[in-house]
Simulated assay, not measured.
Amino acid sequence: MSKLDRIDSKIIAVLQSDGRITLQELADKVGLSPTPCARRLRMMEDEGIIKGYAAVIDQAKIGLPVSAFASIKLERQREEYLDRFAQTVSKWPEVVDCYLMTGQYDYLMRVVVADLAAYEAFLKTKLTRLEGVASIETSFALGQTKRSEVLPLP
Rank of each mutant, 00 (worst) to 15 (best):
G143F: 08
Y53R: 15
T138I: 01
V30F: 08
S33T: 15
G103V: 11
M101T: 11
P93K: 10
L32H: 09
D46G: 08
I12A: 05
R110I: 06
R147E: 12
Y119L: 02
I72H: 00
K29A: 14
I11M: 09
I11S: 04
W92V: 11
F69Q: 09
V14C: 10
L153E: 07
L41D: 00
S71V: 00
E149G: 14
A13R: 07
L64Q: 13
Y81Q: 11
G52N: 06
I136C: 00
A54F: 09
I72P: 01
I7A: 04
L32N: 05
D83I: 15
D97N: 09
K61V: 00
T145D: 10
C98Q: 00
K91A: 14
D5G: 09
Y81W: 10
F122W: 08
P65R: 04
G19H: 11
M109Y: 04
L100E: 02
F85Q: 01
Q87C: 08
G63H: 06
S71N: 05
M1S: 13
W92I: 07
W92F: 06
L108T: 00
M44E: 04
A60C: 06
R42L: 05
I11H: 07
S71F: 06
K10M: 14
A55K: 14
L130Q: 13
V89C: 03
Q104N: 12
S33C: 05
D115R: 14
D115H: 12
G103D: 06
R6K: 12
K124W: 12
T102S: 11
L153I: 14
L15Y: 07
L64N: 05
A118W: 01
V95N: 06
A118Y: 01
K29E: 12
K3I: 12
E79L: 15
D58N: 15
M1L: 13
Y119R: 01
T22A: 14
Q77R: 15
Y53H: 13
G31S: 09
I62G: 07
I49F: 13
T128M: 13
S2D: 15
D18W: 11
D83C: 05
M101Y: 01
R20P: 00
L15G: 05
R42A: 10
A68L: 03
A121W: 09
S90L: 06
Q24V: 12
E137F: 04
G103H: 05
R129L: 14
I72Q: 00
T125P: 00
I21E: 02
P34A: 09
Y119W: 03
A54R: 07
G31D: 08
G143T: 10
S33N: 10
G63E: 11
A13V: 01
Y81N: 11
A27W: 03
A38S: 15
L41P: 07
I57E: 07
E47V: 02
K73L: 15
C98D: 01
K61F: 02
V96G: 10
S17Y: 13
I50L: 12
I62C: 06
F69T: 09
V112Y: 03
W92S: 00
G52Q: 13
R20K: 14
L23C: 08
M43P: 01
E137Q: 07
D83M: 08
I57L: 11
M101Q: 11
M43E: 14
D106R: 01
E47S: 13
A55S: 12
K126N: 10
F140L: 08
D106L: 03
S9F: 06
